[in-house]
Design a protein around this nucleic acid. Structure first.
Lengths: 338, 338
DNA sequence: CTGAAAGCGCTTACAG
DNA sequence: CTGAAAGCGCTTACAG
């Protein structure tokens, strides 16, 4: 049933029905109630595609994943939060997957030209990220999950990566550790740079020399964590503590520590930076893992909020947030062995 | 730029431009080439919302997640595959999240009435699943990932859960195990029933009595795997082997085994049923985990295919597949200790 | 507070 | 092979 039929059915004009259903104030309360009741009873719902064409709003937010949509656990938590929030406003999420950075740029051009989304979410920004300049040039509104440098201000939500790793490093130093390793992410990304800064500055403040051999970079997978940790342990002077960039890296690092015949939390302290995954909690591991954590799901919800406000005309520079990170001490960290 | 402006710009009618761009055969090859070249050069792309209104096709497939969008690693792999396939055809994926089964039904009604999707994907079906009857009643095309019982035939893709667990059970029995535990999923779901059947029938065929105390059910999380395995190990006659329903349950089970002072693959054999996650591979664990596996990412791609065929008018009964499951023996299984 | 009508940007029968 | 025009189902300025 479409608007024309429905309006005829209840003896009102399409105009009035349309206004009643979208909450316009000009409609008499009694009329509105009657329309809403009838819509419910007869099962009428406006065709959302027609609404979108008429209003010029796409009613959707886009998000692009690289690597053939091989999004990991962080992405799914983020998406869960984002979709929960946007759904409340009837906004769809349009997921695209691409293979390369070049394809990602093409995807934004396509989304902008075909008017399929009102805004997009950009994630894992590089320190200077050409996606930002492109979107600004295209006039396609966007929110960045993370931070970056750009000429013109833009909306973003990031966590305090610097503070997180600084706190972790400081805690380990206070426990007497002097050889502290860091498993970090992709060097091009802002978050990896911020974490690296937090690590180096804290070491300097504690009077500990930075040893480049104790820093590794790679994807946040079990395998990378394992490989990097094995490398650290094979050094002439292996670390007595390690900060892993994610829970998955931490799993791999723990395995490497055990295989070396060492005990996590006793011979080698371990801190993971991560979010709480419902299916893999740091509390449940043995020993329970000390973490710096920030709920990526909540970040997804918040970015949904920010996207809605951006579409309502709020200025990008008014939509910039940096969230503090929680530090939870558990059994995987202990005093350095002398 | 819209069609009207673009057509005027290149001196052709809107009709001809539209036909040229959508690949209709009536257009002269030379004209089409000219149109395509100009579109590329001038950056014209049809407004997809207008296309959808005009054609009556939503150009989107819906998928609903329960539990506040708290979709785990399996969902993300599936979505990756699905989106890769659908994107090739310019079909969007519309993700919705709901809290309850009732909300899920409401979501389908809403999607159907507002014509926002051409079809939906239903996952984790129960043995008798009211979603199927609802969608058939609504006339909203759908593909089920999994299997179920229903009056009218419907499209589905499932894996051979029976065969997977039968193979795992048989392998363990051949190694001399007589006390084999099973960590299974939600009892209402078809896959859990099929796995249970594969387990029981194989035990019966091997002349092993079924002990109900050796079967547990729950979510596929690290925590549930841990808790169930601890329960099994506390039995007067603990199992010497366990089949875990997922990699996450397997991680928890391995932890429980180790905490009990036992060695995986020696004191207790372990088989996980799962898919290969890029960030957590059974090959990398220590010991490497024997698995029954089926690529959920490939299933996502295939279901994308099937959805496209369904929309092209293929009959649901022609779109039914059951995939065999691969069995890979690794270090976590060994001969039973006497 | 309500309604008639134009318009959103396409597709596609129909006519040539 | 190409074009003029109706139609998809809404919203919303304009008029009353």
């Amino acid at each position: 049933m479409n608007l024309k039929e429905f309006a005829a059915r209840i003896g009102l004009s399409q105009t009035t029905v349309s206004r009643a259903m979208s909450g316009y104030p000009e409609v008499k309360a009694e009329t509105r109630a009657r329309v809403l009741e009838a819509a419910e009873r007869l099962g009428y719902r406006p065709n959302s595609i027609a609404q979108r064409l008429a209003t010029g709003r796409a009613g959707a937010i886009g998000i692009v994943f690289q690597g053939g949509g091989r999004f990991g656990p962080h992405s799914s938590e983020f998406m869960g939060g984002l979709s929960t929030r946007l759904q409340q406003e009837g906004i769809d999420i349009l997921v695209s997957t691409v293979e390369s950075a070049q394809d990602e740029a093409a995807a934004y051009r396509r989304l902008a030209a075909s008017k399929r989304v009102d805004a997009v979410i950009v994630h894992t920004p590089a320190r200077t990220d050409e996606r930002i300049a492109l979107l600004q040039a295209l006039g396609l509104p966007f929110i960045v999950h993370g931070r970056s440098e750009a000429e013109k201000p833009f909306a973003f939500l990031d966590i305090d990566n610097f503070g997180a790793i600084a706190a972790a490093t400081k805690h380990l130093a206070a426990l007497g550790h002097r050889r502290i390793a860091l498993i970090n992410g992709d060097t091009a990304s802002t978050y990896a740079r911020d974490r690296d800064k937090g690590y180096r500055r804290t070491l300097a403040a504690e009077g500990i020399a930075v040893d480049p051999a104790l820093t590794g970079h790679g994807e946040f997978t079990d395998e990378t964590g394992f490989r990097l940790m094995q490398g650290f342990l094979a050094l002439p002077a292996p670390p007595t503590a390690v900060i892993a960039g994610s829970m998955m890296s931490a799993l791999g690092a723990m395995r490497a520590i055990r295989i070396a015949g060492l005990a996590v939390g006793e011979d080698v302290s371990l801190i993971a930076h991560d979010d709480v995954f419902p299916y893999l909690s740091p509390d449940n591991l043995v020993p329970a893992v000390t973490t710096t954590q920030s709920p990526i799901r909540a970040a997804g919800e918040r970015i949904g909020d920010m996207a809605l406000r951006l579409l309502q005309g709020e200025a990008p520079e008014a939509l910039q947030e940096v969230w503090p990170v929680e530090f939870v001490i558990r059994g995987s960290t202990g005093a350095a062995r002398s």
